[in-house]
Design a protein around this nucleic acid. Structure first.
Lengths: 154, 154
DNA sequence: CTGTGTGCAAACTCTTTGCATAAGT
DNA sequence: ACTTATGCAAAGAGTTTGCACACAG
């Protein structure tokens, strides 16, 4: 009995988006469609959204002939985030996670296996948190840290 | 007109707790009260709770005669967290933040100035998020990222 | 005494940066 | 052409680890 709604986002590079699609997204933000940016965009902007680190994208970028260097992946992801194409997610540990879904939603984080995925919207309430005076809310991150239950012990 | 409830936790090393108090907390968790652990405990377990990184504690530990080394601070904080004396907080960037308040509560994080502080409980709803099947919830982190509002512009 | 923790230094991981070359408009 | 981005390599921040000595029980 598979659970249908546990992982609503398609994680992993199941399919690659066309260069044209990636270019269109960059154009919409006024970002120059250079080769590495288009390639990275092809990997990122898949149906349903993705969660990833720079290293993961670097691995996946191996499918491209001249493959972008890791430093370029970092720079590109940072730039995409600044332009609202990505969202940086606050997680534990010392790695930067990104998410192509920029709208408000929450995350599960699997402690041991380093996996990040969306919490289905119907499981979480609307959070409306007011900032202290003189401040504005840049973003809200909700991370639910998970651990597998022990399987034995009938 | 100062806002009374913005920063409910006392952050910063206003006062140091007695060695005896620190020892008692360690004893309650069955942790050997070695010199560095007691010293670090004296810095951490102040009234109202604290938020900090390893580096911050290292700086404050300069008040002790033989001051614990940074590596020991890291090891100790990690051990304290494993024993439930501290809680690790999920924030952006690549530093590990700790919090002496281990119960459920949420955080503001000031983007530019690297400050982490509690959101007053009355500002946030109770979050009751159910885990996917086969998983258990280890912890829930809510981080509201803040930015100062521009001050000019009458 | 015996085992565990600490100090020190080095290693490691992740991320950023500087600079010459290459590519985009 | 002119500007901006990329590749490469090196540096930088934060954290962890290995090992000999020191300390707690």
């Amino acid at each position: 009995m598979a659970q249908p709604t546990i992982r609503p986002t398609g994680d992993g590079a199941q399919g690659i988006v066309s260069p044209a699609t990636a270019r269109a997204l960059l154009a919409a933000k006024g970002i120059r469609p250079t080769r590495p940016r288009v390639q990275i965009g092809q990997l990122l902007f898949q149906e349903g959204g993705r969660h990833f680190t720079a290293e993961q994208i670097y691995e996946e970028a191996a499918i491209f002939r001249p493959r972008p260097v890791l430093a370029t992946i970092y720079n590109t992801l940072r730039e995409f985030a600044q332009n609202g194409l990505l969202r940086e997610v606050a997680v534990y540990g010392n790695r930067i996670w990104f998410d192509t879904t920029v709208g408000p939603h929450f995350h599960y984080f699997m402690d041991g296996s380093d996996e990040l995925f969306d919490i289905p919207d119907n499981l979480v309430p609307q959070l409306q948190i007011q900032p202290p005076p003189g401040m504005r809310v840049v973003g809200v991150d909700v991370v639910v840290r998970l651990e597998p239950l022990p399987v034995d012990q009938g």
